[in-house]
């Protein structure tokens, strides 16, 4: 029999649903009973969802709308005292696009996102494939591997800062002692290297998540395919290219597009390591937005930056929803 909820919300409550609940409180006048119950019940059902709906409106929808209106206003520290935020049209966007940091921030965002994703994904898939082997301690090692992802990002940033320290960090000490480098590298203080360092740390943070998702995807590939492939001589790399990769494709596209959306908005890795410096070498769209709003208190300009960021994310969000649909259709 269908569920109570199905019957009642579909409106035309069939008679058997009434008979299904003979014992309900309204035994007095049977014909009216279901109707009397139904209406409050519909309201109760809505009440299940109302708190979440209100929350999502207040903490997701409202901020997006507010960012759009703020970006069209002169919204500064003064606004908090006077309550006045004059409309200025697209002036904030002009400020953003004509800023000398617009090009670099865009480029850095692209490099940071592409570099992080490439590293996380390649290492992630290699490890996921590796962990499909059957060996002692497999599960234990795999769960320990999650640790970098579970730590607060700011903890990881602080730790990496000590490791990458130019003068006394362990990385430079190690590389000098084995003779790879002659003089210490300013991992976080040299403008030519800082972005690379930040990308490497973000790769480290993201590997566990990639391994977990890709490993899950690999587990869904039926073992029979490999057995059949092995009969045709497909083992090792051949098996990977002809069996693993095509079957993993739907998961791969989800991992990559989600990865882009989540990497675009990364802020704590960069703020913890370099604060956007040195010499703006690690400025991204998210960092710009944060600094304009919360360092310079130019909320109008800050929200214009973040709307540029949203626009870029939106492109990939649409890609995500589409690739997901394809994944389901396949």
């Amino acid at each position: 029999m269908a569920s109570v909820s199905t019957l009642t919300t579909r409106g035309g409550s069939p008679p058997d649903s009434i008979e299904a609940h003979p014992s309900l409180e309204s035994a007095g006048t049977p014909p009216q009973a279901p109707r009397r119950r139904r209406k409050p019940e519909r309201i109760t059902k809505l009440l299940f969802i109302v708190p979440a709906a209100l929350y999502i409106f207040a903490f997701f929808a409202f901020p997006v709308i507010k960012n759009i209106t703020m970006s069209l206003q002169e919204y500064t520290t003064a606004t908090f005292f006077t309550g006045e935020a004059p409309w200025v049209g697209f002036a904030n966007y002009v400020t953003v696009t004509s800023s000398s940091l617009f090009g670099p921030a865009f480029l850095n965002t692209a490099l940071f996102t592409a570099g992080s994703l490439l590293g996380q994904f390649v290492i992630g898939i290699a490890l996921a494939v590796f962990f499909r082997r059957r060996f002692p301690l497999n599960g234990f090692l795999r769960s320990l591997m999650l640790l970098p992802w579970l730590l607060p990002v700011i903890v990881s940033s602080a730790t990496w800062r000590s490791i990458l320290d130019q003068d006394s960090g362990i990385l430079n000490q190690f590389l000098t002692s084995i003779g790879v480098i002659q003089s210490p590298i300013g991992w976080l203080s040299d403008p030519n290297v800082a972005l690379l360092s930040v990308i490497l740390v973000n790769i480290w943070v993201g590997i566990p998540f990639n391994v977990a998702l890709l490993y899950g995807g690999l587990q869904d590939i039926p073992e029979e395919l490999y057995e059949a492939g092995a009969l045709d001589g497909a083992t090792g790399w051949k098996a990977f290219w002809h069996i693993t990769w095509p079957n993993l494709r739907p998961v791969v596209s989800v991992v990559l597009v989600l990865g882009v959306v989540y990497t675009l908005k990364v802020l704590d890795v960069i703020l913890g390591l370099t604060n956007g410096g040195p010499a703006n070498a690690t400025q991204t769209l998210a960092v710009r937005s944060y600094q304009e709003s919360f360092v310079n208190f130019e909320f109008g300009v800050g929200s214009a930056w973040s709307n540029v960021l949203i626009l870029v994310s939106l492109v990939f969000a649409v890609l995500y929803l589409r690739s997901n649909r394809r994944a389901v259709d396949e």
Partner: peptide, 10 residues
């Protein structure tokens, strides 16, 4: 998918 900085701004 909404960037945290957007939420913080508002």
């Amino acid at each position: 998918m909404i960037p945290g900085v957007v939420i913080a701004n508002a």
